[in-house]
Design a protein around this nucleic acid. Structure first.
Length: 481
DNA sequence: TTATATT
């Protein structure tokens, strides 16, 4: 419940910055008792990330819980930029650093808010930069500048925890230093404010302010992360190809199903579409070997049917998932089958991959019903459906297990698109490793599509595994003990 | 093996 409108003012003292509070920057008390309109925060305050918040709770609801630990400087529930949908988490900054520490130790994983099945998270936000992301390397200092000079320079940007000028054994400055701030934000501010901003006396070029990590360390770490994400010890092309193959197999399977379920005409159309899909997927790996792959499309579109490539979707360029991509009339942000007719222009496209794209689009434009077998041709389209990743109505949400490791959201969407309008599709990813957990959720806008998808895809074999596709377990039925 | 999200 939000606070009753027009009723009680917040407790005495300045209002914290709540995202929902009405704009009242002046304090609004006509000069009497002019406490600070905006509370002050410690220079080394910690921004906290708060997770596992029930989506029904806004800032006003949350405030009492957190005020126990000190005055709140700012509290913001995260919302989807487009839809305003509550994302189930928030940022919280106390005026005092100590309040944050107390709140973290008292609340983090210590209690579960109503309706949640995991305990609340209260911990420094990712932006607070654990470790070295708040430590700066400073170069191009003057040789005569000591720690005090450097501190004076950086002090305006925040709380300096460490400041060390690098020196030769004889004590002379090497013209560089390390400066560690209390937070990553402060460090970033210093970079913004100081890097290149001036040339110190005796230095040969302008001041250098950057994160202390060397580029090499940074690159190394990034590569390790990427290797982890790919779940492989070999370079990228192989997983990409494998992923395309999976999608292709599934689409062919779907084509067969459609062929069986529908009249011969449409079935054939779907089968051909899957065939072309295969071409497109394969082209990503072996494009140069495939001359004029797309010329099987009806109407024989010559080169030039396609403007520049649409942004490739997933691994195989099937459809356009970009909301309102070309300002097409009637385009919407629901994931439908996404086959929009691209206007012809820009002649001279000869690349096989592009032709494959062109073929699919062209073909799909000619036979839209073949690509929208289950839903979009029939269900009315809400005019401005926001792109959200949330549950659909009861009976519309699927749990999918045994996904291939390579499957991402895009592949999941594509796999389930033929069965209806996909409201959301999410592959679960391990936070630490960014690896897929091989399960995910797909939500349709109607139960029939969901049932169709279960019928078609449950038990579908991929490699050694079979997909499990079933309705998502209702929220209340999953309490362990 | 059933929604863990980072302005």
């Amino acid at each position: 419940m939000a606070a009753a409108p027009g009723g009680s003012a917040p407790p005495a003292g300045p209002s914290p910055r709540l995202a929902f509070s009405t704009a009242d920057s002046g304090g609004g008390m006509s000069g009497l008792n002019p406490g600070p309109a905006v509370p002050m925060k410690d220079h080394d305050a910690i921004k906290l990330f708060v997770g596992q918040i029930p989506r029904g709770l806004d800032e006003q609801d949350l405030k009492p819980l957190f005020e126990e630990f000190g005055r709140i400087y700012e509290l913001t529930v995260l919302k989807d930029r487009l839809t305003g949908l509550h994302k189930g988490c928030a940022f919280l900054t106390y005026c005092a650093r100590d309040s944050a520490l107390k709140a973290q130790s008292a609340l983090h994983e210590q209690k579960t808010l109503p309706g949640m099945n995991r305990p609340i998270q209260v911990k420094p936000a990712a932006s607070e930069g654990r470790g070295e992301d708040r430590k700066l390397f400073v170069g191009m200092l003057g040789k005569q500048q000591g720690e005090e000079d450097v501190r004076r320079l950086f002090q305006p940007f925040g709380h300096i925890e460490e400041c060390t000028v690098l020196r030769s054994p004889d004590g002379t400055s090497k013209g560089c230093a390390f400066v560690k701030f209390g937070s990553q934000g402060e460090a970033q501010a210093a970079i913004q404010g100081l890097h290149g901003s001036r040339t110190m006396t005796g230095a040969s070029s302008s001041l250098v302010v950057k994160l202390a990590d060397t580029d090499r360390e940074r690159a190394l770490r990034r590569m390790q992360q990427m290797a982890g994400q790919l779940g492989a010890f070999h370079p990228a092309p192989l997983p990409l190809g494998a992923c395309g193959a999976y999608t292709t197999a599934i689409l062919q399977h779907q084509a067969a199903l459609l062929a069986a379920a529908q009249g011969p005409g449409l079935g054939q159309v779907a089968a051909v579409a899957a065939q072309m899909q295969h071409v497109a997927a394969f082209s990503l790996v072996a494009a140069p070997l495939l001359p004029a792959a797309a010329n099987t499309s009806p109407g024989g579109n010559g080169p030039g049917a396609l403007p520049g490539l649409p942004a490739p979707m997933g691994v195989n360029g099937f459809g356009s998932l970009t909301p309102q991509s070309n300002g097409q009339p009637g385009s919407d942000t629901l994931y439908n089958n996404g086959v929009s007719p691209y206007p012809a222009q820009s002649p001279g496209v000869a690349d096989p991959l592009q032709q494959a794209y062109a073929g699919i689009h062209h073909y799909a434009a000619a036979y839209p019903s073949a690509y929208a077998p289950a839903s979009t041709a029939f269900s009315q389209q809400p005019s401005a459906l926001p792109q959200q990743q949330r549950e659909g109505p009861e009976g519309c949400n699927l749990f999918i297990y045994h996904l291939p490791q390579e499957f991402g959201d895009a592949e999941l969407i594509q796999t389930f698109l033929p069965f209806g309008a996909v409201v959301s599709a999410k592959v679960f990813v391990d936070r630490a490793t960014n690896q897929s957990k091989c399960f995910g959720f797909v939500s349709f806008d109607n139960p029939t599509s969901a049932q169709t998808a279960i019928q078609a895809m449950n038990g579908f074999q991929i490699g050694m595994k079979r997909l499990k596709v079933q309705l998502k377990r209702p929220k209340d039925a999953n309490r362990p003990y």
